[in-house]
Design a protein around this nucleic acid. Structure first.
Length: 517
RNA sequence: GGGCCGCUAGCUCAGUGGUAGAGCACCUGACUUUUAAUCAGAUGGUCGCUGGUUCGAUCCCAGCGCGGCCCA
């Protein structure tokens, strides 16, 4: 049990307590059980946002509605309250001669942030504002702490992330981001379900953290006395399901990666992964174009999305370029001498090229890994419009299937938009012998100090030995997709409660170092 | 992990080596169709924390905390 943080005693807190005490003294319940509404604010605005004052007067629409007070404009014997249901706002007109003495006494003791319920008729004021002419009023809950300012709202990003409820109360744009996010998830589900995909949930706690190249969070199961890892990807479980005959399968859920925090990385993030049997990666490029166009259209209203100063078009088809092609072109331009794709397959040549552009390739890095690092340094940032970068080096893709004509290259693509990796997909490696070889190569990397190298997963190899059909699979970063669709500069803007370091408030438990367990 | 920047009233922000200011909010008064309501007046501060320099530090210096941006 931790003590609740004591709000600082400021004049506004004192005043708000006094206002509630005055109501209680008059017999008003400070925390009533419920309030029966006939309408929400949003429903009223949707139904009558365009109804004229004359029509409202003729219709005599009565309503009972509740919300949080955001603005009070007081005129002595009358006052205007603006209430919100979290989405829309509606003005309430309160005048002394229209209310009981009790209800008007409540009205003059209200503070910004309080919850109220109102019964009255809809009308338009002289300035044509849709309003409720209050006939009665109920106090529903007290707001003891003052809300951020009405004009500038809440701009301090730290407070917006730590106290998201304040952000949602005063910044309508914050609410919109999470509504778009909800639609994105809904559109994706419908898209996949319509195509015969089964949605599943696979374990979040893994004995072997596999399916991606990343460092995991570590935990411990007491009863079984065994270490467990928060999953870094659901990939290997989803492919076990394809072995089990679930030929089209997807999961939308959280992954956890014990890495840095940035505008593009949160330690827990939401990923869509889907697998389609009897398909290859080229099929998924086409499907991804269709899916993202539908997502943009249905979640934002348009396939064209404004992101910063750019307009991003999700209309199919997307640009496609081989990874080595992108890197060789970038190097040719940067260095002023021709660099061929074949140059990128010779370790010594590509290492020298990397050095020329300011990178420091490690001795343990092969040609493939160095090529990818050059790509990240020179190419990624410039990929504004949706672009598939395909055919990756085998070295960096331990779970992908090689090309028939080129064992150094796997059938894999990543999708980039506004310089961010949004998706990663490949034809799945389904040869258990080759898979074992790849894991063993990763283990050698791990022994050389690569903490992100993939671990051996014997159980997964056994599943492959039962026969995984030719399958293509893809992961899509939902948070980053929502960032693009909502023009949000930070991943924290699209995650309701992003990870924050706790504010020091005196004594606290010593954090456990997962690397020393 | 490194570099740079920020932290001042509830919120948004100014400002200064001599103990601090505005707007909004809050309080008092006026006001029964306003909408950033208006008008008049009055409150409100551990200037992130800890040290140092100084007669004196919110300001200069150092360390720490939290956050932001960039880099790895």
């Amino acid at each position: 049990m931790s003590e609740p943080e004591e709000p600082k005693e400021n004049d506004q807190l004192v005043q708000r307590r006094a206002n509630l005490a005055a109501l209680v003294e008059r017999g008003v319940a400070p925390y009533p059980q419920s309030f029966r509404c006939t309408d929400t604010v949003s429903a009223i605005v949707a139904a009558h946002g365009d109804t004229s004052g004359d029509d409202l007067d003729a219709a005599q629409n009565h309503t009972t509605v509740a919300g949080r007070i955001l603005i009070i404009r007081s005129f002595g014997k009358a006052r205007f309250l603006v209430i919100s249901d979290g989405v829309s706002r509606l003005q309430i007109y309160v005048r002394k001669d229209a209310l009981s003495e009790r209800d008007f006494a409540i009205a003059v003791r209200l503070d910004i942030g309080d919850h109220i319920g109102v019964e009255g008729r809809l009308f338009r004021t002289r300035t044509d504002e849709l309003s409720v002419w209050a006939g009665s009023l109920e106090f529903l809950a007290k707001c003891f702490l003052p809300l951020p300012e009405k004009w500038h709202g809440l701009t301090d990003v730290e407070t917006r992330y730590r106290q998201r409820y304040l952000d949602l109360i005063v910044n309508p744009a914050a609410r919109r981001v999470f509504e778009v996010r909800a639609r994105v998830l809904s559109v994706i589900r419908n898209f996949l379900v319509d195509r015969g995909f089964l949605e599943v949930e696979t374990p979040m706690m893994h004995a072997v953290a596999g399916g991606a190249l990343a460092r995991p969070f570590t935990t411990h199961h007491n009863a079984l006395d065994m270490p467990l890892f928060l999953r870094i990807a659901p990939e290997l479980y989803l492919k076990r399901l394809v072995v089990g005959g679930v030929e089209r399968v997807f999961e939308i859920n959280r992954n956890f990666r014990n890495e840095g925090v940035s505008t593009q990385h949160n330690p827990e993030f939401t990923m869509l992964e889907f697998y389609q049997a009897y398909s290859g990666y080229q099929d998924l490029m086409t499907m991804t174009e269709q899916m993202l166009a539908a997502v943009a259209r249905e979640a934002t209203g348009s396939e064209e999305v404004a992101v910063g100063d750019e307009t991003v078009s999700f209309a199919a088809p997307f640009r496609r370029m081989r990874l080595r092609q992108a890197v060789s072109e970038a190097l040719t331009e940067k260095l002023g001498t021709p660099v061929s794709e074949d140059d990128l397959r010779q370790r010594e040549t590509v290492a020298a090229l990397a050095t020329q552009v300011g990178l420091e390739p490690g001795a343990e890095q092969g040609a493939g890994k160095i090529t990818v690092e050059i790509f990240e340094a020179l190419c990624e940032r410039a990929l504004i419009q949706p672009t598939f970068i395909y055919d990756f080096p085998t070295e960096v893709s331990p779970l992908s299937k090689q090309r028939d004509d080129d064992p150094d290259t796997v059938e894999r693509f990543e999708l980039f938009v506004v310089g961010m990796e949004l998706a990663n997909a490949f034809s799945e490696l389904n040869d258990p012998v080759e898979q074992r070889r790849r894991f063993e190569a990763q283990l050698r990397g791990r022994e050389a100090g690569d903490l992100e190298a993939h671990e051996m997963d014997e159980d997964y190899i056994r599943a492959l030995e039962y026969g995984l059909p030719p399958t293509a699979g893809e992961g899509v970063g939902i948070d980053r997709l929502v960032m693009v669709l909502t023009d949000s500069p930070s991943i924290r803007d699209v995650i309701l409660f992003p990870l924050m370091r706790p504010k020091a408030t005196g004594d606290h438990a010593e954090p456990i170092d997962p690397d020393h367990s």
